[in-house]
Structure formats: structure tokens, C-alpha cells
Design a protein around this nucleic acid. Structure first.
Length: 358
DNA sequence: AACGCGGGGCC
DNA sequence: GGCCCAGCGTT
């Protein structure tokens, strides 16, 4: 196939002007490539960078990762978000370590069938590790192609995925798939950025439909985001003899597999008095004598489609609450071995800092 | 086909 | 406050 102008100019830019450096760039170890790709799913390079190095240091091979206690892996993932990635990471590590004897599969289909690996990640690993001719289609690629070809197909639809995958496959330099894929993503991140793209120095300027028609700011097209939810989380930090109740979130909801305290969730804010008079509170403590030691300020954590307002109520009691079945009673010194959502970690650190002051 | 899943940086 | 990020699994 004759190389397109787009591909030629992209590779020329890559060779002459692409100075972007990242720890995993040029990596040939499929395990390390895989790890970097999982970390980077829906995650900015700057945010994932330190996590990648931390993981590689702790787990130099897939066997190290497969053998690690799940709790430790989640603790290392803490704060990175999309925690299902971590669960799938662990599962896939075990399969590669045991079923594949530590050797990462080297066909697109086998790679694609692993948990946590979709079309993008399979193409990335296939091309970077084995130079197989699969085109990556991520946010960068969609944006670059939508602008260059002036296409208004919404990228966040099945039709859009299919369209951009076909287009990207056509443009791919199949002789150097890894280099090409890295180049187009670097180009999207460095030049054809979402905001303030560097059109003035862009090698595609003459051929870019969006630039020529003054539509760079209008592309790519996305369908409207869904409405945001607001939730109130009231956490009881219940202490009994120097230990605290925690519980792993297992329900189909945010923060799956992370830990939390005893949660009373409402859809509307409550006054302290309303909390104390609530059925939840009465069922929890019954008639037993409790000591409300402290009530925190309201924390706010902004997720993509939800706002979480959280407040902590420190309570000490003398007797165990027998019906807290799915809870662990963890001695306070060991609390920090568990992975928590971001604002809980922040609160625990805040509390810890205050205690240092006195 | 639509929806839910985090946290952070930038405008 | 909104948008977007080296997407994926579930329903």
C-alpha cells in the first residue's frame, strides 16, 4: 500500500521533532508494556508515571506481581482510580505467571482475551512488543484523525469506534507499527492537544481539514455527558479498645474493593441531630453507651459523574457490635495497610497530623 | 447501545 | 465548574 501523506508527515515529525520521553517508551518487555498500558488507561501520563516506577521496582517480573498479596497491590494502586483495573491486573498476572509460565502471549487474539485488555491495549502491546500491525485507537488518535479529516462522527459511540478504528488501520505503517502508534499518540499529546493545540507549528497544517476550515475547537464531536449525581456519605469511625471497624466495598458501585468505615449514605444533607435520631444510628448503637469524640468538617470529592460529600463521626464504644458481620475490627496501627478512597486517606492523614501537634 | 467507573490537571 | 485523560467490563 502506498503510504498516505498523513502517515509520511507524522513519521517525519516523529523522527525530526518528537522529543517526548517516558520510562516505558521503547520498552520491549511485554510485561512492562502491559503494566504501563493498564496504568495509563484513562489516566494522564504525568499521573501514572510514578505508579509505573513504583510497580516495576516492587514487581520486576510478572511472577513477583502474581505472588504478591492482593492487599499490598491494592495499597500500591491506591489513589490512581478505576480500581477494577487493579483487580484485573492481579488476575491476569496470575494467569500469565501460571498458565503461560511467565511468558506473555504474543498473538493479538490471546492478548485481547486477557482480563482488563480491550482493543486499545491489545493493539498497543501487540505493536510495541511484537511489532504486529494493529493500530491503536485512544483519545489522542480519535482527536487527531477527527481534526485532520474534519469528521464529525461522535467518537463515543459504537459507530464512531468502528469508523476511527478502520481509518486508523488504513493509515498505520504496517512495517513499523510500534513506532507509528507511539508517534501518533505522542503527536496528539504534544501538538494536537485537546486545548490550545500547537497548530502554528504543526506539520499537518496544510492538509488538516479542521485547521483549514477553522473547526479545530469543534472537533472531535462527543455526545453529551450524563447528569451528575450528588451523594452524602456519613462515616462512623467506631473504635473499640484501640481497634476500628472497616469494611471492603463489594457492591456494584464506586470504589470497589477499597475499604471504608461504617457508612450511612443519604441523598440529602443531614444535620448532626438528624444523624443521631436516624433509624440507622439507633439500629447501629441501640441502647449502648457511646462517646461521640469528634465530628469532622464536610469533605468534598469530585468524581467524573458524581460529587461525594463526606463527613466523619468518631465514636468510641466499650462492647463489640456483634452484627457488623462483613466488617473487620482492625487495630489502629494497621489501618494504613488498607487501601481507601482519596478523601478518607486525606482525613486519616489530617487526623494523624493533628495528633502529632499535641 | 448505554452506562458506570477516579482522580487530577488545565482552562 | 466543565472537560479530558494511552479504555474496559457489564447490562
Amino acid at each position: 500500500m502506498k503510504e498516505t501523506v498523513f502517515t509520511k508527515n507524522l513519521l517525519l515529525w516523529n523522527k525530526k521533532s518528537n522529543t517526548r520521553l517516558m520510562p516505558w517508551k521503547g520498552e520491549k518487555d511485554a510485561y512492562k508494556i502491559w503494566l504501563s498500558e493498564i496504568i495509563l488507561q484513562q489516566t494522564r501520563v504525568e499521573q501514572g508515571w510514578a505508579y509505573y516506577e513504583k510497580f516495576i521496582n516492587a514487581f520486576p517480573t510478572v511472577h513477583h506481581l502474581a505472588k504478591a498479596p492482593e492487599q499490598q497491590v491494592f495499597k500500591m494502586w491506591e489513589g490512581l482510580g478505576y480500581y477494577n483495573r487493579c483487580k484485573n491486573l492481579i488476575e491476569t498476572a496470575k494467569i500469565i505467571s501460571e498458565k503461560y509460565d511467565g511468558k506473555f502471549p504474543d498473538s493479538y487474539e490471546e492478548i485481547r482475551n486477557l482480563k482488563g485488555i480491550g482493543p486499545y491495549t491489545a493493539a498497543a502491546i501487540s505493536s510495541f512488543a511484537y511489532n504486529l500491525p494493529y493500530a491503536v485507537v485512544d483519545g489522542n488518535v480519535e482527536r487527531v484523525l477527527a481534526r485532520y479529516f474534519g469528521d464529525t462522527t461522535p467518537v463515543d459511540t459504537t459507530i464512531g469506534k468502528k469508523f476511527y478504528t478502520a481509518l486508523a488501520t488504513k493509515l498505520l505503517d504496517k512495517e513499523q507499527a510500534g513506532t507509528y502508534n507511539q508517534a501518533i499518540m505522542d503527536f496528539g499529546a504534544v501538538i494536537c492537544k485537546p486545548k490550545n493545540p500547537l497548530c502554528e507549528i504543526c506539520v499537518h497544517q496544510k492538509n488538516c481539514t479542521a485547521f483549514q476550515t477553522n473547526n479545530v475547537g469543534n472537533l472531535p464531536v462527543k455526545k453529551k455527558a450524563i447528569q451528575k449525581k450528588i451523594r452524602w456519605f456519613y462515616y462512623f469511625i467506631i473504635e473499640v479498645n484501640g481497634a476500628t471497624y472497616i469494611h471492603q466495598r463489594k457492591q456494584n458501585d464506586i470504589w470497589q474493593n477499597l475499604y471504608e468505615f461504617v457508612l450511612y449514605e443519604t441523598s440529602e444533607p443531614l444535620y448532626q441531630q438528624e444523624i443521631i435520631e436516624s433509624t440507622f444510628f439507633k439500629n447501629l448503637f441501640g441502647k449502648q453507651k457511646i462517646n461521640v469524640k469528634k465530628v469532622s468538617p464536610v469533605y468534598k470529592q469530585q468524581l467524573t459523574h458524581q460529587t461525594i460529600n463526606g463527613q466523619f463521626i468518631n465514636v468510641s464504644i466499650n462492647k463489640n457490635i456483634s452484627f457488623l458481620k462483613d466488617y473487620k475490627l482492625v487495630i489502629n496501627k494497621e489501618i494504613n495497610q488498607y487501601a481507601f478512597p482519596r478523601f478518607i486517606t486525606a482525613h486519616l492523614q489530617q487526623t494523624h497530623t493533628e495528633q502529632q501537634l499535641f
